[in-house]
Amino acid sequence: MDQSTPAISIDRLTKRYGQTAAVSGLTLAIPQGSIFGLLGTNGAGKTTTFKCMLGLARPTEGRILFEGKPLEPVLFERLAYVPERCALYEWMTGAQLLEMQRRSFARYDEKRANELMDLFALDRKKKLGKYSKGQQTAMALVLAFSIHPDLLVLDEPAAGLDPVHQRHVLDLIIGESAGGATVVFSSHQIGQVERAAERVAIMHRGTLRLAGEVEQLKADVKVVEATFDDEAPSLNGLAGDPSVGQIQRSGRLLRVYVRGNGDEIARKITEHRPRSVRVLDQNLEDIFLTTVATSTPDVMER
């Protein structure tokens, strides 16, 4: 198959529940073999997007294609989904659930499943109902990774896991992607997304606010911060500069969000004789928080 065809393409997806639009007008392309991070506050529409992707919810509008085709039952043989809240058969033991997985999936790899059970220190003889919440999540991850899926959809896969197991999840995601699989995952732990994901999308209140390559987003956005002896000047000239995004003024402090290298804007601000000027890098968390902030108490222009 053509490598340039996205593993998943979401085209103007809208999902309404009654009057509420959980997702509206979402368009995204997830390249094959990539790790894609979906970020958003609670209620941003991440889980709804996943449900629509997997046919668990019917889109109100728009469509989703897998490798250029609509979702077909045959895809489920090479797709794994770990939902935010896993519902495992509580009366089964870990070993029984693995046996069920073996019988259901031709791709099931017993050796791999056993390695994963040991990795997450899961008791095969214990009933799943007696597993802790974190262990249930880990069990769902064992099932997902045991079938060497081509496509993994993980909704908050590290929720409830301790930091050591969280790192194992990242390693598994990275390893699977290095082997050619496409991974889409959501997480509130931005540091994890920053490490593992090649591309991210930031959703807020059902709409897409920002999408792109993590490294590019970080390289693209700088903050020029200046302090003045008196109140920060309004610097109307800056607002017209195409590289300038948000401008925040608060007392003697001026913060200008700049696309690209901030040096030129820093130089322009220097002409207004500030006490100090510096150019700050932005990590993904800064970018996320700026993106989802709908209003700030500071004076905003543009």
Partner: peptide, 11 residues
């Protein structure tokens, strides 16, 4: 190296 550093292999 991706696994050693826990970063994306494409990086």
């Amino acid at each position: 190296l991706a696994l050693d550093l826990t970063i994306n292999a494409n990086t």
